[in-house]
Amino acid sequence: MDETGKELVLALYDYQEKSPREVTMKKGDILTLLNSTNKDWWKVEVKITVNGKTYERQGFVPAAYVKKL
């Protein structure tokens, strides 16, 4: 869990989004888990830094590609 009590997951593999509802992740990324009720796709939040500014983006990743921490 992070400092706000949200559950975290670890990306076990790289994943490139294939639709606007998904998010890209790299092996080793730590993501915030938002919803894991679907056994195949989990909703996560990723933080992306571009030119020194951090953005948060929500989307789905394959559940088999992440592990709860």
Rank of each mutant, 00 (worst) to 15 (best):
E7S: 13
G28H: 04
T32N: 07
D2H: 11
G59R: 01
A63E: 03
V44L: 03
M1L: 13
Q58V: 11
T24N: 05
V46H: 13
I48F: 10
L8F: 15
K68W: 06
A63V: 05
K27W: 03
Q16K: 14
G59E: 01
Q16T: 15
K27P: 02
V66L: 15
Y65T: 07
P20F: 07
F60Y: 15
I48N: 07
L33E: 01
K27N: 04
A11V: 09
D29C: 05
V46F: 06
E22R: 04
T37I: 08
R21F: 13
W41I: 03
E56S: 15
S36E: 15
S19G: 11
Y15E: 01
Y13M: 13
V23N: 02
V23W: 03
L31G: 07
W41Y: 07
Y13V: 12
K43N: 06
Y55Q: 13
V46I: 15
T4K: 13
S19C: 08
G59D: 00
A11P: 01
E17K: 13
K18D: 05
K27R: 10
D2W: 04
Q16V: 15
D2S: 11
L33Y: 01
W42K: 00
Y15W: 11
K39V: 10
K26S: 08
Y13T: 07
Q16M: 13
M1N: 13
E56R: 14
R57T: 06
I48P: 03
T4H: 14
V66E: 00
D40W: 15
L34T: 04
G28W: 05
P20E: 11
G59T: 01
D40E: 12
E56Q: 14
Q16D: 14
G59Q: 01
E17V: 05
K6S: 10
N38D: 15
L34M: 07
K53I: 15
T49V: 14
K26P: 00
K39Y: 06
K67L: 12
V9L: 11
L33W: 01
L10V: 15
V46D: 03
F60R: 03
L12P: 00
K68E: 06
E17M: 11
W41C: 06
D29I: 02
G5H: 14
K53E: 14
L69M: 09
D14G: 05
K67V: 15
R21H: 14
P20W: 08
I30E: 03
A63Q: 06
K18G: 07
D40Q: 13
Q58E: 09
W41V: 03
V61C: 04
K47S: 13
Y65R: 06
E3N: 11
K53S: 11
A64P: 08
K27S: 06
D29H: 04
K47M: 12
W42E: 00
D40G: 07
G28Y: 04
V66S: 01
A64Y: 08
A63W: 01
E45P: 00
Q58T: 10
L8D: 04
L69T: 06
Y65P: 00
K47T: 14
S36M: 07
I48D: 07
W42D: 00
V66G: 01
A11L: 02
Y65D: 04
L31F: 06
L34N: 02
D14I: 02
T32E: 10
N38E: 11
A63I: 03
G52L: 07
F60I: 06
K43A: 08
W42L: 04
D14P: 05
Q58C: 08
E45D: 04
M25P: 00
T24Y: 03
L33R: 01
N51R: 09
G28F: 04
A63T: 05
K6Q: 12
K43M: 15
L31S: 02
T32F: 09
Y15I: 01
W41A: 02
Q16A: 12
D40K: 13
K26G: 05
A64H: 13
K18M: 13
E56L: 15
K68S: 08
A11E: 01
M25C: 05
G52Q: 07
V23Y: 02
M1R: 06
Y13W: 11
T54H: 12
G28I: 00
Y55V: 15
Y65L: 12
D29E: 09
R21K: 11
L10P: 00
W42C: 04
R57F: 04
A11S: 05
N38M: 08
K47H: 12
W42S: 03
L31P: 00
T49M: 13
D29A: 06
G59I: 03
E56I: 15
K39N: 13
Y65G: 06
K39F: 08
E3L: 07
T37A: 12
K6T: 13
K67D: 07
N51V: 06
E22T: 06
L12K: 05
D29R: 02
K53L: 14
G52R: 05
T49I: 14
L33S: 01
K68F: 08
G5F: 12
V61R: 01
A63C: 06
M25K: 00
V50E: 12
G28S: 03
L69G: 03
E7M: 12
Y65V: 06
N35C: 09
N38Q: 09
S36V: 07
E45V: 14
V44F: 00
G5T: 15
T49S: 12
G52K: 05
A64S: 12
D29L: 04
V9K: 01
D40M: 13
V44S: 00
Y13I: 08
M1S: 14
D14E: 05
V61Y: 00
W42Y: 07
E22D: 05
K27T: 06
E7Y: 10
P20L: 08
K43Q: 13
E56P: 15
S19P: 04
D40A: 10
D2R: 05
D2I: 09
D14L: 01
K53N: 14
A11H: 01
K39Q: 12
N38W: 05
T54S: 13
T54D: 12
Y15L: 00
E22F: 05
K18F: 05
K18C: 10
G59N: 00
V61E: 00
N51S: 09
